[in-house]
């Protein structure tokens, strides 16, 4: 086929472009994915028992996960379109990890090494290990659905950020169950599980997002 033929074809009866509200679709994906993760949490491990709520630690957990969701979402809105620069924002997503690891180290340093084991492992590290990636699955599906409506050109990075946001949504849901109140616990288990989701996302990205 000659390129002129193709140009003829594409420019014949050309429709006006329907601008897709990228932000609207993204918010919808977040809302659906987030509620799905929350319902899954309610249906499996359930809310933390009422008497033992610690609002400070819940707020701290949410501060970590929600800041990741915010940064990641802003980045996804850019990555869904070709040619938008985003190096600064990509680097910024590391900030919540750095802050929580620093805070965790400070908390450890202010206790005797005898207490470290309990602070790091808590009561429930195994449930956390299992639940965060599980709760991240549905948000990840929703985010991939959103991204496929766009045209991401950096598939590994886009997949990684989708995994990161999905992992952070999963961790947000888990925080409402999580009975472990220690900063090192959040740093190690929340941090590692969200990072794991991001690395799985970066592996799946090139397969799921190709166009």
């Amino acid at each position: 086929m000659k390129t002129d033929q193709l140009i003829d074809m594409l420019s014949t009866n050309v429709d006006p472009v329907k601008t897709v509200a990228i932000r609207k679709t993204l918010s919808l994906a977040l809302l659906i994915g987030g509620s799905a993760a929350f319902c899954l949490m309610l249906g499996t491990v359930g809310l933390r028992r009422e008497l033992s709520w610690s609002w400070n630690f819940l707020a701290l957990k949410l501060l970590f996960t929600v800041s990741l969701i915010g940064l990641g979402t802003a980045l996804l809105a850019k990555l869904a379109r070709p040619g938008q620069k985003n190096a600064k924002l990509s680097a910024l997503t590391l900030l919540p990890f750095i802050v929580i690891v620093l805070a965790g180290s400070i908390a450890l340093a202010s206790h005797t090494p005898m207490a470290w084991g309990k602070m790091l492992l808590g009561m429930n590290w195994f449930t956390c290990l299992f639940c965060i990636p599980l709760f991240a699955v549905l948000p990840f599906v929703a985010l991939i659905w959103f991204l496929r409506k766009g045209a991401p050109t950096e598939l590994k990075l886009t997949g990684a950020i989708a995994g990161l946001v999905a992992g952070a949504l999963g961790a947000t849901a888990y925080a409402f169950h999580c009975p472990d109140d220690s900063i090192p616990f959040i740093a190690v288990w929340y941090g590692a599980m969200v990072a794991l989701c991001a690395s799985i996302g970066s592996m799946l990205g090139p397969r799921l997002l190709r166009w």
Partner: peptide, 23 residues
């Protein structure tokens, strides 16, 4: 050209057009 055509909707008019095409 095909990709540009089927993904026209992803061009954000507030952004540079050639950067979009080049990407």
């Amino acid at each position: 050209l095909f990709a540009i055509h089927t993904h026209r909707h992803t061009y954000d008019p507030s952004q540079p057009f050639t950067a979009w095409v080049y990407a």
